[in-house]
Each structure stands twice: as C-alpha cells, then as structure tokens.
Nucleic acid binder design. Structure first.
Lengths: 112, 112
DNA sequence: GCCTTCCCATCGGCTGTCGATGGAAGTATG
DNA sequence: CATACTTCCATCGACAGCCGATGGGAAGGC
C-alpha cells in the first residue's frame, strides 16, 4: 500500500505538509482537518483517521503543532491543533522541498 | 527516512513511475537509468542503487519491463531493461494518478 | 599492481500509511 | 424511549517502500 497505483489517496511523505498547511488559517481539530483536506482537494485527498492521528502525534512530538482540548461548534469534545512558529518554518521548508521534487519529476516526465 | 524533510532525494511512491518513464526512449541498464534520472532532473533525483534494483525486480515481476543481458558500450556486462506493452499502460496510469494527486496538493497549498 | 569507474545485487532496519477496531458523546429518527 | 447515525478521539498490526551498508566482479588508466 501507499503506492500511486494502489487505492492510496495520498502521495506518501506529503501528509505532514498537508496537515501543516491546513492549520495556517487557524486551529482545527483532527476530524476537521481531514474534512477540510477532502473538501479543498475536491474529494481527491481522503485522509483516513488511522493516517491522520499518527501524523498529528508526530507533529506534536516535533513541536510543529500544539494541542489543547476544547469543544467543537457542535458541543462535542475536541482537541484543537495549532501551528507553532517552528511549525511555520517546517511548513515553508517542506513546501519548498516538495516543489523542488515535483519540478524535477516533471522534467523527467517531459523529457525527450 | 523516505520523508521530504530528510535527506531523501525522492518523493516516495514515484520511483516506478520515474523508471518506467526513463525507459520510454529505449532500453537501458540500471546504472544508466539512475544516471539519466539524475542528469535530466538537474541532480535533484538521486536514486541509490539499493532503491533502484528492488524497484526493477518489482517491475519485472509485474511484467512492466523485461530484461536481457548484453554488454554496455564500454564492453561491460550489463542487464538491459525494456518497457513492455503492459509497462506502457502502467506508465500512463501512474502518470495520470501522479498528476491528479499533485493537482490536489496544489489546491491545498494555495487555499485561502 | 593499484585505483577508479562501471555495473550487478542483497540484507537489515526504519518509517509511513492503511484497514480494522473500539469507545464516547451528541443529534436525529421512529 | 430505544436505536441509529454522525462526530471525534485513538491504537494496533500488517505491509511495503526506501535507504545505508556491504559485497563482488570486470574494464581501463596510471
């Protein structure tokens, strides 16, 4: 699994980038992040919860995001994740790297 | 390893695509494929041999490529890999999928 | 004779992703 | 009321891909 030809709906290695980017407009809870990614991508990016939460743990551990409990607009207990300054730097870095690699791949795809 | 922020020089999950694409102009041996990818990508895509050969085995197993022994232009023993018709179909499919995902990610990266 | 380049290949380990699973708390249905 | 559905949290086990290290052999230059 985790390969483009499989049922994967994600390019492996881009999940952190996507999550960090999703948090730029403001704090969100996990479920909301997944919904937002799905929505913005036009149903292409379908992040399962079993991919999402490990990723969020990772981000917490590295200090890219912080978390605090609260209640969602539906009166449900929810954990809100917020981008830290370090997280913004990481986002910028991952984004540059991603674009660098995609450009490189495009060159290969378009070569003679 | 295998993540964008690491020293990885590859977007995980794109290696098969790259190899298949590299074989479109004609048969090549493994070492040549790696060199070509590096060159065309402007030194960005650096495929280690320990990534390359397992990938080639995979492609062989799936029938996307076939292999035959020969000698390189330098009189050295070399195994030449050639795209099969099934390989071309696979290439087209992986390429579409890759572009689909990249577009989706772009949407996220550029969202408000 | 030695070193570098070319070319093959494998093995062990790590990490990321996913399917399955489970739970709790609100909201709607009948 | 009871049942079902949705939201929201989270973990576990399996699996596959990539990489660093390592091995070797054969051609050619110094």
């Amino acid at each position: 699994m985790g390969r483009p030809s499989d049922s994967s709906e994600l390019l492996p290695g881009t999940l952190d980038l996507l999550i960090l980017r999703a948090l730029v407009p403001g704090s969100m809870h996990g479920y909301g992040i997944a919904s937002r990614l799905k929505q913005v991508s036009g149903d292409v990016l379908q992040v399962g919860e079993s991919s999402l939460y490990p990723a969020l743990q990772r981000l917490l551990l590295n200090g890219w995001v912080k978390a605090e409990w609260g209640s969602s607009e539906n009166n449900r207990r929810a954990r809100y994740y917020t981008l830290t300054p370090a997280g913004r730097k990481q986002l910028a870095s991952e984004r540059r790297e991603f674009e660098r690699l995609v450009e490189a791949i495009q060159k290969v795809l378009e070569m003679a």
